[in-house]
Write a protein that binds this DNA or RNA. Structure first.
Lengths: 194, 194, 194, 194
DNA sequence: AATGAATGAGACTTCATTCAT
DNA sequence: AATGAATGAAGTCTCATTCAT
């Protein structure tokens, strides 16, 4: 069996190059030749591994890291704000590795079905996770509607920070923490009044 | 007097065609020839009006409708939830006309400075407007931090619905109303406890 | 209106170049760049006039000269051999101008429907024409089956000479004349026996 | 003893696949990868057996079945028409096995010398064979010119049917038989009149 | 003012062929 | 003997842009 000249890292290098360039200039505006150049492989090798250019995108999506966080790892029983804070910080750690990729997803979701599907899946997962933490943090007597609203708003904020923050800088660096606290307090307030 | 062959609507038709196609397939994936075809003008005319293809994008951005809503028109003194509801519904009316355009902005902000600037401006305007309405609705005794958080979250939700909802359908059609109510109630709760 | 830089002969030159190269090396083995070079036009112009490479073939087919010969012009009443001889010589004159093209048709008929259709049409016309001349030459008392056979064989011989002679040199230069005489005599003989 | 992984039929399977694909789409339009796929062998093996792609064509030509028919096997003394009929039917049987291949020869003769040579050889053999049968069928008193003409025309008709009939359907299914009879009768007539 | 013609840079892709094992 | 990996040359086609009128 012929041994890979690139000790099997060539494919990875190509994907890494594609991720960077796609995120930077967009899928359409990135020629495969440039990907090859950045990955330091001959142009032909890119097409050997990925028959169509779009296959690069698909492969990138399949390579997405799992962002699921075990609720037990972050929940501080009785302290919702702290629980959410730990969840967000844990998500941050994981997502920041693929921040460029997240951004890319939003850009290309329109035109590539695989990308759009992945984007939707990931967002659903995110919402469910926030919901799980809220419930596990043990603030009794919450209306489900409130939980859903809080989870939706928070998921949006997290997701947005990781994919869109590049464009829209609105509340400064501590905005997330402030919003998170606001939501936690709001939930607490409402539960007391039930 | 010499009348233009296209009674001066040709330019508009070109822009309308560009907006539709850009939003649908993206800027790079839309040839000027296709814009010309949709606008039913000769290909040469597109380049006559817009020397560079990117000029189409710039012109589109400059043509963006103003989405500013006079706070007085929507505020119901003393009823924050209703005030916000009216604000959102008013914004909805205005934005739905240019929903494709909003979506386009997010896609192309990366690579076109003019677009990114416009996107940022519009978001800032949106946040300030929400803040103004919250303040005008007369819920006394609010911490500025809470107002900012609420405004940020709500602006995000509105903006997101108009440009991204295409991809991520998370909370169903009534999500916005629920979230809006949640925020209003949260603010009210907190003010009472001050 | 913009005037053609090539005083409208560029298209023709491209077609001529294509005809020559296609006939020489085959359709697939001829790059459009080579056609452009031979026609002395920039590569882009070839694709400007002919969006797909196959369109060159179609255009070539549509440009095929009409090979129809007015029977009256060649028939010598009562002398079938001479009538056929004149027909063939007239066809020769016309076809020799497009000998390469005829050859090309046979090669590419498999893979290009337009070519195959043209080839069939032209062959039908050829057969009918030979038949018409036989009948007009006034050899009475012929069975239709014989006329058909004679026409079919002769058409084959003529067509073959113009498109295949390049490969198969079988009977020498005077073969056609000999075969033609043979057929004429055969018909005459058979008519006498009716 | 070490047995080849493919029990020595792999080479044959490759050739069979090549024959089919070449005949169907042409030599140039058939990638070796597709041949390998159809033959169900790894792509590398095709190039292992046939260093150049053109070698496939050469091998195919060398594998051509011998179409020579022993005159004695078909001649019915004194009955020329029947003799020719039997010859043609015998040739039919042999050629139909390699009809695709015959067709292929005409297509690729232009560009591959080995193919052109084989094509010419086979045609020569065909003509000589028809001539031998005509002479052996014992129609006395024939001019050599007539025999040559008849043989040439008939060989053309046979050859044409096997390689070109795909394109030009002119006289229907019984054309060959009719033409064959016509030629036989013609020869007979002419011999009587000598 | 308006436009058809023309251009050339460059994109994606295919593919025969070579090579290391 | 056999084969997956790798390569680079070349091909078709698209397209923004320029130009001449």
């Amino acid at each position: 069996m012929a041994r890979s000249k690139y000790d099997s890292s060539a494919r990875e290098r190509i994907l890494a190059a594609a991720e960077e360039l796609f995120a930077q200039h967009g899928f359409d505006a990135t020629p495969t030749s440039r990907i090859a150049a950045l990955a330091e492989v001959p142009k032909g090798l890119v097409h050997y591994y990925f028959k169509r250019k779009a296959d690069l995108l698909t492969a990138l999506v399949e390579r997405l890291p799992d962002e699921r966080v075990e609720p037990a790892r972050v929940v501080v029983p009785g302290d919702l704000a702290e629980s959410l804070r730990r969840l967000v910080s844990e998500l941050d750690r994981r997502l920041s590795a693929s921040r460029m990729l997240s951004h890319l997803l939003w850009r290309e979701a329109d035109t590539h079905d695989a990308v759009r599907d992945a984007l939707q899946d990931r967002f659903q997962v995110l919402v469910r996770q926030v919901r799980a933490v809220i419930l596990a943090a043990g603030v009794g007597g919450l209306a489900m509607a409130d939980v859903d609203s809080a989870a939706g708003l928070l998921a949006l904020a997290v997701s947005y920070r990781h994919s869109m923050a590049r464009h829209v800088e609105v509340n400064g660096a501590d905005a997330m923490d402030r919003e998170l606290t606001f939501i936690a307090d709001a939930l607490k307030s409402r539960s007391r009044h039930e």
